[in-house]
């Protein structure tokens, strides 16, 4: 009863790069520069500390340790130099939270109109959390949720509110 439904932890120290390009055409170059395979539609590919998420048919999001950011941007910019493409640093534009624990599903189900049964292990779902945009994917023990930096306090507030002890969604 006294236990929150899930741990809510802000994650910092991540670098993020938005890549816009024709993925059919430039996919190989991006994969090589990013060090990850191109994810399928609405999927995210993770390999150790790096992830590459499918954001839209012509947009990917590379997530990696902040220390590797500058090199990655340089590598991607280089690799796409001859393409029509956009590579931009969006690391500072985001707020990232990990929602973990046995009832992490319940916390997400209170905020996002997303059918979690339909979210594959490597699924990336862009939607909203209450009234603000958010993207979601699975991590061991729960979910990682990213939203906009300016709404970080709001996100923490609604996540913690959704996780209050005793408010699990199991039928009573």
């Amino acid at each position: 009863m006294a236990e929150a439904l899930a741990d809510i932890a802000r994650v910092t120290g991540l670098g993020m790069v938005t890549i816009r390009a024709d993925l059919d055409h430039a996919g190989d170059a991006i994969a090589e520069a990013a060090g990850l395979a191109i994810p399928g539609q609405t999927r995210i590919v993770t390999d150790g500390s790096r992830s590459l998420g499918w954001m839209s048919p012509d947009e990917l999001l590379l997530i990696l340790p902040a220390a590797e950011l500058a090199d990655a941007i340089a590598a991607l910019t280089d690799a796409l130099a001859s393409e029509h493409a956009l590579v931009v640093d969006v690391s500072d534009a985001r707020a990232v939270f990990d929602v973990t624990g046995p009832h992490a599903d319940d916390v997400i189900a209170k905020l996002m109109p997303v059918d979690l049964d339909d979210l594959p292990p490597d699924g990336l779902r862009r939607s909203r959390a209450a009234q603000t945009a958010a993207a979601l994917w699975r991590i061991p023990g729960g979910f990682r949720l990213i939203g906009f930096r300016s709404t970080a306090d709001y996100l923490r507030l609604i996540l913690e509110n959704a996780a209050i002890p005793g408010s699990g969604l199991a039928p009573r």
Partner: peptide
Amino acid sequence: PYCGVKAEETE
């Protein structure tokens, strides 16, 4: 039709 997501109206 671009991402295959069944989205509800609020999205």
